[in-house]
Design a protein around this nucleic acid. Structure first.
Lengths: 229, 229
DNA sequence: GTGCGTAAGATTGTATACGATTTCAGGTGC
DNA sequence: GCACCTGAAATCGTATACAATCTTACGCAC
C-alpha cells in the first residue's frame, strides 16, 4: 500500500526501480553499458537524476561505476558469487530462527502468498518474476525477524543473487526451490526455530550448488533498446 | 585551479571521507543539519558533488536524507543500535574463524600495528582516532578472511557503531577493548579459529553491554563551524 | 494577546551548460 | 601491412541556473 498511494516518489527512485527489475529479469545483460544520456532519454529525465540513480544501483552492486568510463551492468565473478552466498549463509539461517519465534498469522499469510505467486509465475513461464518473488520470500523473513539492518543486507544479497543466478545457472531446479520454501514456511509457522535455521542453511547450500561456478569468458554486449518500456 | 596533488580521488570521495571522519570523531553531532550550500562552501565545491557525497553517506547510514528537507547526521535509535550489533554478531565471529585459518605474517603485523596505534592514540587522549583504529581492526579481519562482501558490510556496521558508541557510551572501558583485541590477535596468529570465533563473539557482547541502551531524549544541535577543516 | 492565513525567503530537486577525459577513426611513417 | 601518433567525436565530471517545495515571519482578524 505504500507504493501505489505515494506518488511522492522522487524521480530517481522510479528509475532505480525500473533499472533494477530490468537487470533482475535479465532484460539488460551483465556487462552492458548504461549510457547516461540514453537512460535519461528513455525515462524522460536529465542526466542529473540518472547519475543519482546509477550511483544508488552501484551501491547495491547491480552496476559497476568506472571513473570517467561510465556505468556498466555488474558482472559478478565466480569469487563474488561465492562470497555473496557465504554472506547469506552467515546471515539468513540465524535470522530464520529468530523469525520463527516471532511469526504471526499475518506473517504466515504473507509468506504463503509469496509462495503462491511464485508458483503462479513459474506456471506462466515468467521466470524473471518468479525469481523476484523467491527473493522477496527471503527478504520477508528478515523483516519478520524484526532486524532492519540484517534485512537491508539480505535485500542487497538477494538482489545480487538474482544477477548471479542469471549468469551462472546450470538450468533446472526452480521447483525444488518452491519446495524448500514451503518446508521453510512450515517450520516457521510451527515456531520451530532450529529446524528453520537448518532448512535455510541447506536451502542456501542447494542454491549455491545449483550454480556452475567455474570460470568462463563473459559476453559484454552493448545495446540499449532492451530498456524500452 | 590549485587542486594539485592527488587527482585520483574524485571530488566527492574526498568529501565523503572528511565528513565521515568528522562524524566518527563526533566533531559534528548527530542530528545536525548538513546544508548543501554550507558544506559546498567549506570544501570549495558545488552542490552537485556535495549531493553525491551526501547520498553516499546516506547509503552508509551516517546521514539521514529527508525529502525536500535536507541531510542530517544520523541519530541511531536504541533499536537500531541493537540491530547493528546483532548483525555484527552474525557476521564477525565466523569471519574471525575464517581469518584465523588464513593469517599470514604480514596480516599479523598489520593488526599489531593497528593495536599499537590505537594504544598510542588512547595515551594521547585522542579517543576519536582510537575508535577509528579500533574499527579498522575489525574491518581488517574481514579483509584477511578474503570475504569482500562481508568486509563491506562490516565496514558499514563498524562505521555505524562509531556513531552509536558516541551516542550511547556509558563507562570508560576503552582499555578492555585493547585487551580484547590483543587476545584476539593472539588467537588469530596461532591459527586457532574456534578460539578466535569465541573471543570475537564475547568481544562484541562486551561492546554492546558497555552501552547504555535505554531510550532518552536527543539533543539535535545546529551549527556548521565544527566542519572547519 | 493569540491564532491563522499568506507571502517572502531559504533550501532542495532538476535541468542545462561547459570543461576534462576517454575513445576511436584516420592518416602517416616504417 | 602494421604500429603509432594525432585529432575529432563521444562521454563523463562539475558548475551554474531555474523550478518546486518547505520554512519562517509578518499582519490581520478576533
Amino acid at each position: 500500500m505504500a507504493r501505489a498511494a505515494q506518488k511522492r516518489e522522487s524521480g530517481d527512485e522510479r528509475i532505480v526501480e525500473r533499472l533494477a527489475t530490468a537487470i533482475h529479469e535479465h532484460r539488460i545483460a551483465p556487462g552492458m553499458k548504461l549510457n547516461e544520456d540514453e537512460v535519461g532519454e528513455v525515462y524522460g529525465v536529465s542526466r542529473t537524476v540518472v547519475r543519482a540513480a546509477l550511483q544508488r544501483l552501484a551501491h547495491m552492486r547491480l552496476v559497476d561505476l568506472r571513473r570517467n568510463r561510465g556505468a556498466f551492468v555488474a558482472q559478478p565473478t565466480v569469487k563474488e558469487a561465492r562470497e555473496v552466498f557465504e554472506a547469506r549463509a552467515l546471515l539468513e539461517p540465524r535470522t530464520a530462527r529468530s523469525a520463527a519465534e516471532r511469526m504471526t498469522e499475518a506473517d504466515i499469510a504473507t509468506l504463503q502468498t509469496h509462495i503462491d505467486n511464485e508458483h503462479r509465475a513459474l506456471d506462466l513461464g515468467d521466470t524473471g518474476r518468479a525469481l523476484h518473488l523467491s527473493g522477496m520470500f527471503h527478504i520477508e523473513i528478515a523483516r519478520i525477524a524484526d532486524q532492519a539492518t540484517v534485512a537491508e543486507f539480505v535485500t542487497q544479497l538477494v538482489s545480487r543473487s538474482s544477477l548471479i543466478i542469471a549468469l551462472y545457472w546450470q538450468r533446472r531446479a526452480a521447483l525444488c526451490e518452491s519446495h524448500a520454501h514451503h518446508a521453510l514456511l512450515r517450520a516457521l509457522a510451527s515456531g520451530d526455530g532450529p529446524l528453520a535455521e537448518d532448512l535455510m542453511k541447506s536451502h542456501l547450500l542447494d542454491l549455491l550448488t545449483s550454480l556452475d561456478l567455474r570460470d568462463r569468458g563473459s559476453a559484454p554486449q552493448s545495446l540499449k533498446e532492451a530498456l524500452s518500456h
